[in-house]
Amino acid sequence: MQRQLQVVIALAVFAVCGFAQPTGEIGVLKVQGNVYMLVGAGGNIAAQVGADGILVADTGTEAMAPQVAAALKKLSSKPIAWVIDTNIDSDHTGGNAALPKLVGGGAPGARPRIVAYENVLNRMSAPPTGNLPQAPDALWPNDEYAMASKDFSFNGEAIIVHHVPAAHTDGDSMVHFRRSDVLVVGDVFTPGRYPVIDVARGGSIQGEIDAVNEILRITVPLKYQEAGTYVIPGHGRLCDEADVVEFRDMVTIVRDRVRNLKSKGMTLDQVKAARPTRDYDTEYDAKEGDAFVEAVYKTLDGNK
């Protein structure tokens, strides 16, 4: 009974982490190659489909799994063979268990391989501490990696999973579909919204900046800074390199401003009062500006 109660509490708390919960329909957009972007299930989902089956990068919330499954079935009659979690948040991992079951088509009882950086598994499986819950074990990755990257081939395409340390969290991954030339980057890049730097889960401003610069290292525009490598963000619209540049400039400039104010001995409240994000608030959601500044202030120059 106590175990059941723990699981219920864990599920409830886990469900409120991450971004706001979605409602409504799933939007499906063909990106290029055999990669699609699914929107409306919490975090964005990328699906690669082909003769070998379906690979999804992120699974959205558990609540939206039926709608996501219905959308995937229109793209392929095959089962989900691979799941890659770009981070631990429930709006990216909530469908890890439900979605493959609802899509179906696999051997009875078979689970897809669920890839994530090892810190995702470590945090999901850790005993509850404070407000950070233990996730139900059905959601846990079963194919975690601990090195800088992991690669494999699926549907005849090279898939490269890159770990970007200490950015949004300490368990972030980016997924590069090399032939399709699509990069799925999770919550390290959220156009139109300040990045959520989850300090309690190991995120930091320098890791965030390093991560967006890593995106720019991988992307190659087709012509005149447009198209070429497409970038599927954790939330928001489909992007390419030029869009990431705007975001990289913003996080770097805000970091520079906060560092300058902090170096003058200003407290966090004084830095917030100086409004170092005021020229970005109309574009990146003013309500989140203070939280972003606080995360920058607390993690500047290696501080935690």
Binding site: P221, Y224, Q225, A242, D249, Y280, T282
Partner: peptide, 27 residues
């Protein structure tokens, strides 16, 4: 323009176009 646009331009250093390659062919 509003205050946000004004501050954005005030903080612009023209070196950005030379240092950031991504700006050089920005249509």
């Amino acid at each position: 323009i509003n205050d946000a646009a004004r501050m954005r331009a005030d903080s612009f250093d023209a070196d950005r176009i030379s240092v950031e390659e991504e700006y050089q062919c920005r249509p």
